[in-house]
């Protein structure tokens, strides 16, 4: 199943860094998503786009994770040659990630 069925997401930009949040619709899904959606997995998911490291921050009380992705915006909003300079569409791509229902 796609992440999109269990969680929602928003992208923010600062310089060449993109942060993508991942927020579960139901708190009971948080723990299994926390185990499934690691920083490594996200880094791999975005491998064509994100050149730097990915750090995951956890906010269990909100049922949320925040992925901070370095060197993710083609040099930064002001000088990127990408169509979507802010990387606003990256959240939609995170939610396309396939996760298994087990665990």
């Amino acid at each position: 199943m796609k992440l999109k069925e269990l969680a929602h997401s928003r992208t923010g930009d600062k310089g060449n860094i993109s942060n993508v949040s991942l927020i579960v619709y139901h708190l009971e899904d948080y723990e299994r998503l926390r185990q499934a959606v690691t920083a490594e997995r996200v880094k791999n998911h975005f491998k064509d786009i994100v050149k730097g490291e990915v750090i995951r921050y956890e906010l269990p009380k909100m049922g949320a994770m925040n992925f901070v992705m370095q060197e993710a915006l083609g040099g930064g909003v002001t000088r990127s040659l990408s169509l979507d300079r802010h990387g606003k569409s990256l959240s939609s791509y995170l939610l396309e990630m396939e996760i298994s229902l087990e665990s």
Binding site: R10, I17, S21, M62
Partner: peptide, 16 residues
């Protein structure tokens, strides 16, 4: 709750 959570984390790096 969902709209508030999305915006609270918008353009945030380390939430702490």
């Amino acid at each position: 709750k969902a709209t508030v959570k999305e915006q609270l984390l918008y353009e945030i790096h380390d939430p702490e």
